[in-house]
Design a protein around this nucleic acid. Structure first.
Lengths: 237, 237
DNA sequence: AGCTCATGTGAACGGCTTTTACATGAGCCG
DNA sequence: CGGCTCATGTAAAAGCCGTTCACATGAGCT
């Protein structure tokens, strides 16, 4: 990691040279430490070593900075989900679960992005480009659901892919926002959020008629020791 | 609705007489209008007709006011869920779904409470009595899950009730916080949040092996026209 | 060299939170 | 009823923030 002009502090002429980027970085730091509410425009400026008025050359106001972060967040999120989905390899169900885990991993490892994206209280409709980014990310989940729906067992009516996608999203978001971030501020659990979500998704998929032991499908098969794994939960009493 | 001293405005001696209550009311109004972030201590004071310093006689600081609201929210929430659960009448599955709907109804009809409870960014561990209230509310869901788990079909291993409860909670919270509040600020959906959640829960329960057509059980039976209702979703394409 | 315009500064306004010293009067005690 | 006391409210002030505006600087172009 290295900015053009060394952290922005030290010697630095009248012009910063990289202020916009420095502000975004600072804001990310601050949000991850104190939440999107505690984040302060002035603090970010201070951290970048400029006067409190300087940021206004790059962002209309505080909200626009947060929206910019949310925007980037959705882009990284989309890329992460795309990678996790990996076009359904090695088999659809496995890939699908990987997407769920990626969702949680993002919420855990990038709490600042996640907060900006989902907990900043910005009206989504006010910002078309932001909403577009959000929809591109959701489209990954939706595409995965589409593929999964196509595999639905013949006996049953096909579940609408859009609905499945919304279900998965709500489960992921629910788990992430109730139990997701480790640091502070979350409830205690008898299991990890990842396990919780995995079980939830597996049960849900089973409810749709999918075989969830991962034997069928494209079977690239590194079967887990299929021992007594008869249900999607561990040995919890 | 009528306070003791008429709105707090009008004629009113040096002492308000009911300030604490008036502040809580004002805060509820403000939060529901502008979100927990936009809410201002000074505004609440103004609305109650007192000086900006007066609230400090009743709340240590702004956060404590919000925590008080969250506290009340959890109490109302608990009461609502208890009522919806109605001790599992007329049958467990029906009552269970009613709890899900009550959850959403609360989020929709009491957005201020809901925000204070789940989106205020307060550390839950910092406030023991608040966490206790939250746990009492969750206990209702947990108790319902317990009863449901006991009914699990004999063929399969019993799902842990705690896990089921957490699953249901995460689904409800996910749907509520992504799509829950109608006014502003939410995404568009091909179906109502209520339908979305109902389908999600039904599919999930089916995944656990429950018959979800509501024919078995205590069968107090006001069967819906069981026509072509072969899956938990409507005619969505 | 000189011009121009994007970018940063300083000072100022109004608003918010919180603290402190002081005012008021409700409730009690004699 | 008179007076005391203490919870409750006020005024003023300090310190922070967001935001704006007139002004300074200097990077890049001609």
């Amino acid at each position: 990691m290295s900015w053009r002009k060394d952290q922005g502090r030290a010697e630095r002429g009248y012009h910063h040279g990289n202020l916009k980027e420095a502000l975004l970085q600072a804001a990310l730091d601050l949000i991850s430490k104190k939440g999107p509410a505690g984040f302060t425009f002035a603090d970010a400026a201070r951290m970048a070593g400029v006067s409190p008025a300087a940021p206004y050359r790059h962002f209309r106001d505080r909200d626009e900075l947060i929206a910019s972060i949310a925007q980037r967040g959705f882009e990284q999120f989309e890329s992460l989900l795309t990678q996790a989905w990996d076009d359904g390899r090695p088999d659809t169900v496995t890939a699908f679960e990987r997407v769920g885990k990626a969702y949680l991993a993002f919420a855990r490892e990038e709490p600042a992005f996640y907060s900006a994206m989902f907990e900043s209280g910005l009206p989504p409709d006010a910002n078309p480009t932001l909403m577009a980014a959000s929809e591109r990310a959701f489209a990954i989940i939706r595409a995965a659901a589409e593929r999964l729906a196509a595999l639905a067992p013949p006996g049953m009516p096909r579940p609408p892919a859009m609905m499945m996608a919304l279900h998965i999203w709500s489960m992921s978001h629910g788990v992430a926002s109730l139990f997701g971030r480790g640091d502070a501020a979350r409830r205690k659990l008898p299991m990890s959020p990842e396990e919780l979500l995995e079980a939830e998704v597996l049960i849900y998929l089973r409810g749709l008629g999918f075989a969830t032991d991962r034997r069928p499908g494209t079977g690239t098969a590194d079967e887990k020791p299929a021992g007594e794994r008869s249900g999607p939960w561990g040995k919890a009493k």
